[in-house]
């Protein structure tokens, strides 16, 4: 990154303020779409800390959404006496902690796998969590779990959760940005490019991967806790979704794999397309979504940022060619 850090943070916070004011003029439907965009973008950036920076593409991050959400919900259910303003922070703490423990526990063995095998193993982890959650009665996965209404009475819950997602999204984004520009981030990049060489050159690859994995999982879990509160009632099927697992990869591919802005752009675009453009298709929307994926892979394998980059290169080539 060539920008000055202070300027960069200022720009991001400026954008955030503009976005925060948006619900004042947006109709309620677009506030909901905005919620979903910010939530998806947050997830996509959290995913990219591991999948984009370190090149360990997880196919099972919905596990952390689910574990975070259910851990928070089960604890909050036992604390009904407390004011709602306290419940959400407690829930997030619990959810984040649960994800930290789970990810730390599986990190060591599972990060020995690479490429597709890592992706598949994460899918396995996600399904094991989902099945256990569904089949152990105290975890209430199949009967469903209610979440307390945490929005202050004066606020429209839709706007409240919009702002909450926005705040969480900005935090996730800034954390990812800090990671990217740090020595740690450079280490992750070296792992993505050539892990064995990186290790030979003295990069503590194991430790770096594990930290990235846990960070990514905890941030995902926190977003999952907010998501569950915004729905108010969840079953296993609401959070452990294979289409979420897949969407997280699609966001990065659509925007640009391994970049910081790519996942955000990808998430915004895909949510807009599926929720606004394709929304009215009654028995056609699966087909349209599938077609979109196919076209994406065939036409823009580098994502939107990849297209922009190649366009810039071509223009530069065109500009320099006549001078020679």
């Amino acid at each position: 990154m060539t920008q000055k850090p202070a300027a960069f943070v200022a720009i991001i916070l400026g954008c955030a303020v503009v976005l925060a004011l948006a619900p004042l003029i947006l109709p309620p439907f677009y506030v909901r779409v905005g919620q979903l965009m910010l939530y998806s973008a947050g997830l996509a950036v959290a995913w990219t800390i591991l999948g984009g920076f370190a090149g360990y593409a997880s196919f099972g991050h919905a596990a952390f959404i689910g574990v975070g959400a259910f851990a928070a919900g089960l604890v909050e259910e036992r604390l009904t006496g407390l004011p709602p303003a306290l419940l959400l922070p407690i829930g997030m703490l619990v959810g984040g902690l649960a994800c930290a423990i789970l990810s730390a526990a599986v990190a060591y063995p599972i990060l020995r796998l690479r490429g597709t095998f890592f992706a598949i193993a994460m899918l396995g982890v996600c399904h094991v969590c989902a099945e256990l959650n569904n089949n152990i009665d105290v975890l209430q996965g199949s009967l469903g779990l209610n979440f307390p209404a945490v929005a202050p009475a004066a606020w429209d819950p839709a706007v409240f959760f919009y702002e909450l997602y926005l705040a969480a999204g900005v935090v996730v984004f800034l954390i990812a940005w800090q990671i990217q520009r740090s020595r740690f981030g450079a280490g992750l990049l070296s792992i993505r490019e050539d892990e064995d060489t990186a290790r030979m050159l003295g990069v503590p690859t194991e430790r770096y991967k594990r930290i990235a994995f846990v960070a990514s999982a905890v941030l995902t879990g926190l977003l999952g806790v907010i998501y569950a509160h915004s729905l108010g009632y969840i079953t296993t099927d609401s959070v452990y979704r294979d289409d979420t697992n897949l969407s997280l990869i699609v966001y990065s591919l659509l925007g640009g794999m391994g970049t910081l802005f790519g996942p955000v752009i990808g998430a915004f675009m895909l949510v807009f397309i599926t929720q606004v453009v394709l929304a009215r298709l009654l028995d056609f929307h699966l087909f349209a979504t599938g077609l979109l994926l196919v076209l994406l892979v065939l036409a823009a394998p580098g994502g939107v940022l990849g297209l922009v980059k190649s366009w810039k290169l071509r223009r530069r080539a065109a500009a320099t060619a006549p001078a020679e």
């Binding site: 109709p27 309620p28 439907f29 506030v31 909901r32 779409v33 919620q35 979903l36 939530y39 839709a158 998501y227 729905l231 969840i234 099927d237 609401s238 979704r241 289409d243 599926t274 929720q275 929304a279 009215r280 298709l281 009654l282 028995d283 929307h285 699966l286």
Partner: peptide
């Protein structure tokens, strides 16, 4: 005026809001 929710709660809640609007 119906839409396909594909059993996805996020999709269903967003699109219900559109109809209310």
């Amino acid at each position: 005026k119906l839409f396909d929710d594909a059993s996805d709660p996020a999709r269903a809640t967003t699109l219900i809001q559109r109809q209310i609007d």
